[in-house]
Structure formats: structure tokens, C-alpha cells
Simulated scan of single mutants.
Amino acid sequence: MGQLIYDSEDRPIVLDDRTLAHLKVVLTTKLRRQEGFTLSWRHPATQPRGRSTIWLHPSIPLQFVFDEPEPPELNQQWIQSLMESANSTGGIALVDEVIEGPA
């Protein structure tokens, strides 16, 4: 499991490496453009039921920590879905990856 460490928080956001790798692409793209936005996610089963939202801004420190040494192959459709969410008024809603089979 990877970690998204936001503003040097004592409680990192724990995500699987694959999700974190895709999210990294979207977050760094938005922050490189100097855009602030929100990120929302549902709490995992290991935490009390609920959801959280954080405000992301280029001036706030952000660190991505991966367990796996090699990056996964990225799903461009998932990145596009996350980017569309990031560009909406509601910010990024962390959604599960959708893998389409052959047509």
C-alpha cells in the first residue's frame, strides 16, 4: 500500500500503489498548472465508516510514497476519468478503476 502524505500530516492517506500512481498523474498535472482543487475519497474498511475531503494547492507540501519499486502500467481511461472529475466544481472524487474488455 502506498501513501499520500499531505502537508507533512501524521496520518498519511493510504492507497494501493496502482491507485496512487494514477492519482499522482492527475494531481501533479493540476498542481503544475497552479490550480487548487479538492480530493475526496471513501474511508477504507480498516477505518471508521465515512469519507474525507482535502483541499490541494501548489503551496502545500505533497509526497507520494510507493511500496513497489516499479511503477505500474497506467490506464489512460482511468486518468481521463479522474482528470474530468478534477476539472469539475466538485473536485476529484476518487473512483475505482474501470477496465473494459474487448469490444
Rank of each mutant, 00 (worst) to 15 (best):
T38W: 03
D16L: 10
L15R: 06
E73P: 03
Q80F: 03
E73M: 11
L23V: 12
E9N: 13
E35I: 07
D16I: 13
L74R: 03
L82S: 07
E97Y: 01
I60N: 02
Q80M: 07
Y6K: 04
S85H: 04
M83N: 14
L56G: 06
L94A: 10
E68L: 15
I99G: 01
S81W: 00
F64N: 08
E100H: 05
G36D: 09
P12F: 04
A103E: 13
E97F: 01
I92N: 01
R32H: 14
V25L: 10
I54Y: 10
S40W: 01
V65E: 08
T28R: 12
S52A: 14
G91C: 13
L74T: 04
F66C: 09
D7G: 06
N75F: 01
D17A: 14
G50T: 01
F64L: 12
G2A: 11
R49G: 00
R42E: 13
S8Y: 06
S81F: 01
E100W: 00
M83E: 15
V65T: 07
S59E: 12
A86V: 11
E84Y: 02
Q47M: 01
R42L: 06
P102S: 13
Y6M: 08
E97S: 03
D7F: 08
Y6P: 08
R18Y: 07
T89N: 10
E68F: 03
D17Q: 11
S81N: 06
Q63S: 12
P61Q: 07
A45S: 12
W78I: 04
L39D: 04
P71W: 09
M83S: 15
L56K: 14
S85K: 08
V95C: 07
Q77K: 06
P44M: 03
R51G: 10
Q47T: 00
N75V: 00
F66R: 09
